[in-house]
Every structure is written in structure tokens, then in C-alpha cells.
């Protein structure tokens, strides 16, 4: 649906050249919700703007819906853009126009008959839950409502792709959730492919199928959200995952780890999927003469799959602890890793 190949974007400030995107490759399937995460300045905004050519890449190719956008004439490109909706961080609504006219704008640009405009806008406002606000002005709306107008407007021309540029970054957590729900609903009901740019890992966890991590203009890690969350490879991805998984050790636990000796060993156990439900620890306590002490733990759900993370302390004879570890390693319940954790 969306394919970026070797896309680079270099800004020439006159004094020096700034590389915003460096040989980015991205492939997004139809119907996917794809997230791109990165710190500010990583090049996220440039990336999403290169998809609908609000910014022209310095090199590379951008294909949306089978059309190579860089080869289109200005007129063809304008037509192609009607198939690509865009939602902005700061909504970018016309303050001088009513909610109705704002949503109708893309249709008015292509000279859609009045009746059709009215019908379509009414339908869209109902979909985003703002039927009663049609005659209000953007100034009279809350941030969440403004973003709903922005979303309704982006859907007016029935696009097959929706680009979200930090669509929830200006909103409070509760409103963020309701907007994410709406995006998910759009993806389900209209089968619209969504590309989300964000700096919040929570957004990725909440609705994305796949994720790419962008750092200094390069995609440093990409894969399914589950893969990246359960086994982040790069430090930057690990930091992002940590920001929402809360698997960082509390200080008190860290002190205990420092004080560990052969008879008191601390391990990190990661459960994935069904194994989260299995009573591994209580089995160990029954079968082996060791004390099991859970120091820290949490269970999160990723795309419907439970994901557990426990820090446990085993007290007992070193020999017995080794047997426990063997048992854990050999258990057929999917246990991802057992490791002595230095912090």
C-alpha cells in the first residue's frame, strides 16, 4: 500500500546540510496500522510528509496505492492526494469556518454537488460523534473535538490511506485514548491503512500492528509490535519499550541484586502468551527446596497477547537453585529468557 525505497531528505540551510532522512525503507501492507516512533528531531515529521509529498524527498521513491508519486505531474499529484488523508498534531482547521464547512472543504475543492456534500458531511460528523457541533466554530471546541473534526475532514474524500502526524500529542491521556479508539474503528470499518507518527510508545502499544523505530533519520529497528516489544534489539528501542512496559527495576530491588550471593540469586523471567497463565512459580516452590520470592513484576497486554515480566529471588542451596533453572529452561511453557540481571 505504501512503500518507501531508499528515501533520503536533506535540508540545505545555506550554512550546512542537515540530513533528516537517511536511506529509509518502509513497507506498509493494506489494512495495517503502522507506527513510526522516534524522539523529536529523529525525522518523523519529514518521513510522514514525504509520503504525501508535502516535502519532496531528495532521493528515493515513494509508492502509494501502486502509484509512484514522484513521477506524477502536479495535477496528478493533487488527485493522488485525495486518496491520502492527513491528520495533524495541531489540527490545522480553518478558524473562520464552521465545523461543517471544515469537514466539507476537501469535497468543496473538487466541486462535489451540494446535496452529496451535505450527506457525506452529516455522515462523517455522526461517525466521529460531533453531529451537534456542525454549526460551531473550531474555537468553541475542545482539543479532542477539534481532532475529531480533523479526522472527519481527512476521511471526506474516502481515502485508502490515512497519515497521522503526532495526532494525539497535543491531547491529554484520556482524550488520546478516545482518539486512538476512533482511529482503530476507522481502520476496521473502512479498511483504511494508517501510518502513525508519534513519540509516545503508548500509542504504538495501543493500536499499531507494526512499528519502525527512527533514530537520526534512519530506521534502526522494525517489525511487528509484539516482536519489538518483547525483544527490542537496539538501545533506543529498549528505552521506548521501557517507557511503557515499566519493567525497570525499582531501586530497592537493585540494592538487593547488588547484595546477591550464591544462595540468594535474582533472576528475570519473561512470560509470553499462554505461559503467563501457568503456575510456574508455585510449581517450583512445591518441587524444589528453595524459597521463591517475587520482588517485582507486571503483566501487560500487547495486541491481545499477555506479556509478563517478573523479577524473582531464589533462596536455597546453589545446587538446588541450579536444578530450578534447569527446570525453567526445560519447561515447555514458553518462557523466553531467564537471566541473572545486573540491573
Amino acid at each position: 500500500m505504501i512503500t518507501l525505497e531508499h528515501v533520503s531528505k536533506v535540508y540545505d540551510t545555506g550554512i550546512k546540510e542537515i540530513t533528516a532522512l537517511d536511506d529509509v525503507n518502509l513497507h506498509i501492507e493494506k489494512g495495517e496500522i503502522y507506527g513510526v516512533i522516534g524522539f523529536s528531531g529523529a525525522g518523523k515529521s519529514s518521513l510522514v510528509r514525504c509520503v504525501n509529498l508535502l516535502e519532496r524527498p531528495t532521493a528515493g521513491s515513494v509508492t502509494v496505492n501502486g502509484q509512484e508519486l514522484l513521477h506524477l505531474s502536479p495535477r496528478e499529484l493533487r488527485e493522488a492526494k485525495k486518496n491520502i488523508g492527513m491528520v495533524f498534531q495541531h489540527f490545522n482547521l480553518l478558524n473562520s469556518k464552521t465545523v461543517f464547512t471544515n469537514v466539507a472543504m476537501p469535497l468543496l475543492l473538487s466541486k462535489t454537488p451540494k446535496e452529496e456534500v451535505k450527506q457525506r458531511v452529516t455522515e462523517l460528523l455522526e461517525f466521529v460523534g460531533l453531529s451537534d457541533k456542525a454549526d460551531n466554530y473550531p474555537d468553541q471546541l475542545s482539543g479532542g473535538q477539534k481532532q475529531r473534526v480533523g479526522i472527519a475532514r481527512s476521511l471526506a474524500t474516502q481515502p485508502s490511506v490515512l497519515l497521522c502526524d503526532e495526532a494525539t500529542s497535543a491531547l491529554d491521556p484520556e482524550t488520546t485514548n478516545s482518539i486512538l479508539k476512533l482511529l482503530k474503528q476507522i481502520n476496521h470499518e473502512y479498511n483504511i491503512t494508517i501510518l502513525i507518527i508519534t513519540h509516545e510508545m503508548g500509542v504504538i502499544r495501543e493500536i499499531c500492528d507494526k512499528v519502525a523505530v527512527l533514530d537520526r533519520g534512519k530506521v534502526v529497528e522494525a517489525g511487528s509490535v509484539f516482536e519489538v516489544f518483547s525483544d527490542p534489539k537496539t538501545t533506543i528501542a529498549q528505552n521506548f519499550v521501557r517507557s511503557v512496559m515499566h519493567d525497570q527495576l525499582p531501586d530497592s530491588v537493585y540494592q538487593l541484586i547488588k547484595a546477591q550471593d550464591e544462595a540468594h540469586q535474582i533472576y528475570r523471567i519473561v512470560f509470553i502468551g499462554e505461559s503467563t497463565g501457568s503456575p510456574l512459580l508455585s510449581q517450583i516452590a512445591k518441587q524444589f527446596p528453595v524459597e521463591v520470592n517475587v520482588l517485582f513484576g507486571n503483566i501487560t497486554e500487547l495486541q491481545g497477547i499477555p506479556f509478563g515480566n517478573l523479577i524473582v529471588k531464589f533462596d536455597g542451596e546453589p545446587k538446588e537453585i541450579n536444578r530450578v533453572l534447569m527446570h525453567i529452561r526445560h519447561s515447555d511453557i514458553t518462557l523466553k529468557e531467564v537471566l541473572a540481571d545486573a540491573g
Binding site: I84, M86, F88, H90, F91, L94, P106, L108, L109
Partner: peptide, 21 residues
């Protein structure tokens, strides 16, 4: 707000439409 122009360009408005609308 430059964002408004950006939105206009994203929805495929012609330069004339961007100015007038």
C-alpha cells in the same frame, strides 16, 4: 497559521484554491 496551508496542500488544493479558500 502555516499549518492551515499544509492541510490545504495535503487535501490536494490548487494554489488558487489555497489563496481564495
Amino acid at each position: 497559521d502555516p499549518g492551515v496551508m499544509e492541510a490545504a496542500q495535503a487535501m490536494g488544493a490548487t494554489p488558487r484554491q489555497i489563496i481564495l479558500r
